[in-house]
């Protein structure tokens, strides 16, 4: 049964999972921001990205079309406003999937 989750809750959980894959000190970043690009700003390579994807799938009980997202991102400009790799867009996309199929634990 699907359960709604707010953008802020999803953002918090997703950034925590991203933090497991990147080192802000190495990146010289103080805090993850919604405008950050997953690969360009947060240094996630394809292995890191897939680790984040699999963690999100487990966390929210959803299935992410990771290949499609990666292909779409590779066709977009690195810093495009609508880039699927921009954190705010990434969280929105995950939220859409949660609303469609997710089983978020209370």
């Amino acid at each position: 049964m699907s359960k709604s989750i707010s953008y802020d809750e999803a953002y918090e959980k997703i950034t925590a999972l991203i933090l497991e894959q990147c080192d802000l000190e190495d990146l010289n970043i103080e805090k993850i921001e919604p405008h950050h690009i997953l690969n360009a700003d947060l240094g996630l390579d394809s292995v890191d990205f897939l680790n984040v994807i699999f963690d999100i799938e487990s966390e929210f009980g959803i299935s992410i079309p990771s290949e499609e997202w990666m292909n779409r991102a590779s066709e977009q400009a690195l810093n495009a406003e609508d880039s699927v790799f921009r954190l705010s867009n990434f969280v929105e996309s995950v939220l859409e999937l949660i609303e469609e199929e997710g089983t978020v634990s209370a």
Binding site: I53, F54, E57
Partner: peptide, 10 residues
Amino acid sequence: ITHHGGGYLI
């Protein structure tokens, strides 16, 4: 196998 996709599996 617990996850599979994007050319990777866990």
